[in-house]
Design a binder for these strands. Sequence first.
DNA 1: CAGTGGTCTAGACCACTAT
DNA 2: TAGTGGTCTAGACCACTGA
Lengths: 253, 253
Amino acid sequence: MQGEIIDKNSVIPIYYQLFKYFENQIRSGQLQPGDTLPTKLEIAARFDISRMTVRHAIGELMSAGMVYTQKGKGTFVASPRLDSVVFNLNNFYDEIRQKGMKRHAELLEARIIKADEKLARRLGIDVNTRCLYFRIVITADGEPLAYETKYTVYSKRSPILESELKDPSLSTLAAAHSDTIPSSSKKVLMVSNATEEEAKVLGISPDTPVFLLIQTIYNAESKIIAWGKSLYRGDRYKLTTYEGWNIEDIKNS
Amino acid sequence: MQGEIIDKNSVIPIYYQLFKYFENQIRSGQLQPGDTLPTKLEIAARFDISRMTVRHAIGELMSAGMVYTQKGKGTFVASPRLDSVVFNLNNFYDEIRQKGMKRHAELLEARIIKADEKLARRLGIDVNTRCLYFRIVITADGEPLAYETKYTVYSKRSPILESELKDPSLSTLAAAHSDTIPSSSKKVLMVSNATEEEAKVLGISPDTPVFLLIQTIYNAESKIIAWGKSLYRGDRYKLTTYEGWNIEDIKNS
DNA sequence: CAGTGGTCTAGACCACTAT
DNA sequence: TAGTGGTCTAGACCACTGA
């Protein structure tokens, strides 16, 4: 009987088999939030494995947020946090890929500039510091979807490849052209109306709402090394998120 | 020397002290992405602790995404993923609290209704099923900030408290009035322009951009048990996120 | 082949909870 | 006091890497 669940001779670690076993129990609803898991001694005895191995499996479940423990009492199935919402911005581009559309980045402008007052403030640098500045528009199947403006300090003076300007994330760009490596980032997501210029680039009517994302990249000394502004068409983009223990069923419904 | 780092007689577990030690090393930049950590045997010997305890500490670092291991090679400091962006919606309300403003929820309308065609489709239920419907507006210091419309199936027919309608998340509401418990949720964040009615409630001019959040709550059988629509004023709300190993420094800059 | 990380064990002791 | 989870150990064996 227990052989059907745990195969001690498998190449798959025992703790992982055990983890998957309980994960399935929870995802399928056979174990409901609030239910108690068997005690570690019970599990260890039932499958004839070490208590430490059981602990390892339960530790994984805890890391996944699916169970919690109380000293002296037991291990319990956790309730999913359905009110804390986490959005993943990769979503923006995953969506394009999912729809089988081809993403394409077009370079509108690329220059080495000397920072003016405003840019110097944004990047926390001195006026006249050399910066790399460029603008791209991202299209899918010929339709403009996003419009990005990026600045990064240009201290290395290493050559700039057009291919490099087209696709990369702000942090990889900062890595290439700043003399220190990116360490942290701050991002702010807002809603806005497109300006006339932006609307023209995106091929939408002015005053159409858009997502506005401001990115700042810092190095290990917490100095700003890159700054970027991205606009995403509000009529084409949305952020979707799923939470809970039986997510897969929902995605297919 | 090692006594300054690890106190074996402390109430704080050794593995946790070790975890914090390396976490600090990474956050402070003394260990940079790509650097190798000492081998487990070295660490175990240096602090005179068991290899398993060292593993435990490193396991925590891995769970935190700060290091990764390669069989036969060693343990390495990971590079933070600065391009995958995760936004936490609690942000919306945390922000209010942070500014020291008082959040207040005002009930505009609350009724038991029979589902019409449209609602029945949204909730995946039969027409005429009894539902709880209500609208609230959330204000901070008297200023409207968000406007929420919620529906949940009303199968329990348990009494409805006004206090209950005012603040709670959609999932707690579904838990109170549906006959099955919430298990998963789907949320979609979009940008939109406020309609005339919405603009009036929010005290903004029409065509002001807003965040639009659609929430759906499912039970363990993947049936919809609640649906909600929330509008957040685009001129008052933003979502901010930080990523990387030295985040704290940035937040204060 | 030596060195690394990965898994597993059997048993020890502790702190906490409930009775 | 018995039962729970939490920590720690010393040592075993494995798979993988690189010289």
